[in-house]
Structure formats: structure tokens, C-alpha cells
């Protein structure tokens, strides 16, 4: 199956520090797949927003299972190609979209979160800062409505999938 993988510059996995081989070559886990511990991890489009880093890749997974919502884990996987549409410019667009989506309806504590998100969005890049804006915006949504955090993350992921031209489970964000 095909999935998506965010990596640090140079095809480096953000948590394990493993450098993925060049596109086409398999990366094989030494241990059976286990969430956040072993196996090759990748994302479905609906899980993108939480995990953004500098590089986004399309990957092929062999024998994958969905071990958490939007997170696939497999014994092995290989890079297919870079999603070039994800870069500092689209990361800033993403951050602005996240901030604007919660700004108009926010009041009180939520408005403070939304203002923080808007301020951080102006300088966001594809590394940590875009991820942080999405996180703050999701907290603004939670401050407005219980359960808003998860709903906002889903909206953010759909926005990303739509903007980057990736297939998603749901339609474009409303």
C-alpha cells in the first residue's frame, strides 16, 4: 500500500534518527511492528497534521497495519518520491490557514491561543514551527468546544491533503 512519511532533511526519521535508503530501496525493521517502538511507520493523509517536518515523502509499505488512527506500521517500506509541494512556502500557507480557521470564532482563552497561532504563522517553516502553529490552533479549537482539538487536527490534515494534491479519506476542508 502507499502512504506518506515526514522526514528530517537528508531522509532522516524524526524520532529514531534512522536514515532512509534512497528511493526504491527497502528499509526493513529488525523487530516485529509495534506502535512507536519498532517497524516502519508512515501516515494516511488524515493523520498528516500532527507530524509535519521538513520533508514529505510518498512511501510504499509491505504488510502494513493501522495501529493508531492514521498511523500505519509495517515490517518494511521504501521511499517512492518526494512530495515537492510540501516546502517552506506551503508550510507557511498551512500555518496561516490553521490560525485563520480558528481566529474568527475565538473568544476568551481561545482568542489568546488564536492570536499566538497567528503571530507564529507569519514566520512558519516546514520544520518545527509549522507543526507548532497547528498545535496551538488545535488548542484554540478545544478552548471553544470540547473535542475541538481532534476535530481541528482532522480539518488541518484534510487541508494539507487537499493543498498538496494527496488523496484523502474525506473531501476538501469546509
Amino acid at each position: 500500500m502507499e502512504a506518506l512519511k515526514f522526514l528530517r532533511p537528508g531522509r532522516v526519521a524524526p524520532f529514531t534518527g534512522v536514515t532512509w535508503p534512497p528511493p526504491g530501496q527497502w528499509l526493513t525493521s529488525a523487530a516485529p511492528p509495534e506502535l512507536c517502538r519498532a517497524g516502519v511507520h508512515a501516515l494516511l493523509p488524515d493523520g498528516l497534521a500532527t507530524w509535519t517536518t521538513e520533508e514529505l515523502w510518498r512511501v510504499e509499505l509491505d504488510g502494513a497495519r493501522e495501529l493508531a488512527p492514521g498511523i500505519m506500521v509495517a515490517p518494511r517500506g521504501r521511499l517512492l518520491g518526494r512530495v515537492e509541494a510540501w516546502n517552506d512556502q506551503t508550510a507557511r500557507e498551512f500555518a496561516r490557514a490553521c490560525a485563520e480557521h480558528v481566529r474568527d470564532h475565538a473568544s476568551g482563552r481561545a482568542a489568546e491561543y488564536a492570536a499566538d497561532a497567528a503571530a507564529a504563522a507569519a514566520a512558519a517553516v516546514a520544520g518545527d514551527s509549522a507543526a507548532r502553529v497547528g498545535y496551538i490552533a488545535a488548542h484554540a479549537a478545544e478552548a471553544m468546544t470540547p473535542g475541538g482539538f481532534a476535530a481541528e487536527r482532522r480539518w488541518q490534515s484534510r487541508w494539507l491533503a487537499d493543498r498538496l494534491g494527496l488523496p484523502g479519506k474525506s473531501g476538501p476542508p469546509s
Binding site: 524524526p14 509495534e34 512507536c36 493508531a68 518545527d128 507543526a131 507548532r132
Partner: peptide, 23 residues
């Protein structure tokens, strides 16, 4: 040391994804 339950590992890494201080 890989002694953390799966659900807590996921929360741990979700935090790392946006927090460069903890990274």
C-alpha cells in the same frame, strides 16, 4: 529504554513533534 506503553509513547512523540525544546 522502551519501557513505555504504546499509548504513552504516542503521546510522547506527539509532544516531540511540535516542541523543539524537548527534542
Amino acid at each position: 529504554e522502551a519501557r513505555m506503553p504504546a499509548e504513552q509513547r504516542l503521546l510522547f512523540e506527539e509532544h516531540l513533534a511540535f516542541c523543539d525544546w524537548c527534542q
